[in-house]
Design a protein around this nucleic acid. Structure first.
Lengths: 363, 363
DNA sequence: TTGAAAGCGCTAACAT
DNA sequence: ATGTTAGCGCTTTCAA
């Protein structure tokens, strides 16, 4: 309650009257026409300095802010970006979404946009959501996030000529021509693998997703190539399973029995947690006996008693790029590049042998 | 790509023309006036059955959907609910927000609303965000979520006569008269404590937050009362610390040394992870040697190799209640109750001694 | 039961 | 550099 009276920032001290002031009210007070007030807002360069000052003062005094609906109607825009917000997958450590959403909200704000969330649990519902928002011109553009399974959304939006940017490459559809931003998963797992190689590991195992998942195969290639670049064999060191803890745990058990790896690189933090589970059962100390690296730097990685080394996606940068491309798209500027690929970083914690308890003290 | 051609749901097959059809277009096609089309949408009872059918067919054929901006301008509403989406606290297991946001998006949709996200990392920024959206009549109402620290938002919004519902009680401000929905934390920790009592534990320790946090004190009281209801002493069994893993780990170490508890109830999953860390160091098996219960049913609780028993907030119900109250508010119906208190549930996993590996198989 | 008129608040286009 | 006119697409009010 203490900071309440501060009258903070740009917040006007004027309480809202029953009906907020309009352009006309401001114009009258400033002794100019409505159009001049509009220009003061949208094209201040057109006004003489003293007129501008006078109008601005009237605006401030009245706590005026242009009515969104009226502006939207006139300009045929909404300054809204639509984003489908599906349910989080429970039981996995994949909480990339909310970090991304926050980044997107921030980046959008800077570009003058707000983020509109709508539901849609499956493809059909999703397309219905897109369709409704589009037909009612409720949003200017969309950001789509789940491009992993050759899903219909991108193709559908393209056909509707709806402006959108995808977070994720169009893996399956090489005819796709829409802009996208993605994170280089292979670069991330290469980072992880080279980090382990640098510590002397040579038998580094891979636990990833099933072969039909292109993201999984991409991440796998980073490990595979890093190993082969060092002339190391990967035979018997790879496993492809479901993205669950139990699958990860079982895969780790099998690999430990059959191939005696000294380190694991995983396609997800979920799988890495499975590995840690198996190590715990076998009384093997993570980081000391066996090194483990996950992917996504989820809360689980951060909070696990033995901090889990993990590949972290630069979601803040992804959001900024997406908004940048969206801006070009909406201003009918040519979009330079079809796709933007960003490089992740590696967050090193105790599970890969580098003890650093301080890292985990962060609030 | 396979399901793309389904033409799913209510989605019209008509691709969007350069300019979407208007009410007038539909009216012309149906051979009625614009007003009749409007009535077909908003007051279908007023139309004769055959007229209604004819208009509806024209609407379907043209893939018409009313322009949002025009409707908003005319009705002075936006069908948008504003929600500040601050950054997730990294390094903690508290990911309540995204589960709540998803629930809110779903519940809002059913009531005809969409959720508008805006940023604001501190109180000042937040109020600026509220103010801007309010003055530009961009949203109909707000949902505010962080009522824990006597923050200025609720009071400010009340003063502006802005419709809003709070997720969280006005702990500090007993003069507050705004509607709120909250979860009964004390009931949750009582549930946790009684679950442990039922298994024969008598020395059950508490690790919670600092005394100035009313949510923490509320949760603490659930443990405290459940213990005393059984005539059990709590002397030396409670600790109040920062909400970090290290604090939880240290508190657990001290309690184990000084008071020999056989079980821990914690104010958060983050603290519970700290306890598990200490158990791990001391080679004590969670669930077998020492029972542990957390709070929030975070991903960490779900994914941890030894599943962490945790109190789960009914966020879906919270969202539904909030939207219900919001609906009353916006339709100028009297709001029945000032506040709604919902009861959490306990998700039992191995860390409290009930082995159930199956629970963790869920995808 | 349907239609006509008016106007929500703003900005693009043009005129001065 | 500023003002005037018109109209975005819808719904509220009133008339037929």
């Amino acid at each position: 309650m203490s900071s309440e009276a501060r009258g903070a920032g740009h917040v006007s001290g004027v309480p809202l009257p029953a009906l907020p002031p309009t352009l006309a009210d401001v114009a009258e007070r400033a002794g100019v026409s409505r159009q001049t007030v509009s220009n003061a807002l949208n094209n201040p360069d057109l006004l003489r300095a003293d007129t501008l000052a006078r109008v601005r003062q009237a605006i401030a005094e009245m706590g005026y802010s242009p009515n969104r609906a009226a502006r939207n109607l006139r300009t045929r825009t909404s300054s809204l970006i639509g984003l489908r917000f599906g349910p989080a997958q429970e039981g996995t450590a994949n909480a990339t979404m909310d970090r991304f959403v926050h980044s997107l909200v921030e980046a959008s704000e800077l570009a003058g946009y707000h983020v509109l969330l709508f539901p849609g649990d499956d493809d059909d519902e999703a397309v219905t959501g897109y369709d409704n928002l589009l037909r009612s011109t409720a949003v200017d553009a969309f950001v789509i996030t789940d491009t992993y399974l050759g899903n219909p959304q991108a193709a559908w939006l393209t056909r509707q000529r709806a402006p959108f940017v995808a977070f994720g490459r169009p893996w399956h559809d090489h005819t796709a021509r829409h802009p996208w931003v993605d994170v280089d998963g292979a670069a991330g797992t290469r980072l992880a693998t080279e980090h382990l190689l640098a510590q002397g590991h040579t038998r580094i195992a891979w636990i990833g997703w099933r072969k039909d998942n292109p993201i999984g195969e991409d991440r796998r290639s980073g490990w595979f190539n890093a190993m082969h670049d060092q002339g190391l064999s990967t035979t018997g060191l790879a496993s492809r399973v479901e993205d669950t803890i139990n699958s990860g745990a079982e895969a780790a058990a099998v690999l430990l029995d059959e191939s005696e790896p000294t380190a694991f690189v995983c396609a997800s933090d979920t799988l890495a947690m499975g590995v840690l589970h198996t190590l715990w059962i076998r009384q093997l100390a993570p980081g000391t006996d066996i090194a483990v690296v996950g992917f996504d730097d989820s809360q689980v990685a951060q909070v696990f008693p033995v901090g889990l080394t993990s590949v972290r996606q630069p979601l803040e940068d992804v959001a900024v790029e997406i908004v940048r491309v969206l801006g070009s798209l909406l201003n009918h500027q040519p979009v330079q590049e079809r796709g933007v690929l960003l490089t992740p970083t590696l967050v090193v914690r105790e599970s890969s042998g580098v003890a650093d308890p301080a890292e985990r003290t962060a609030t």
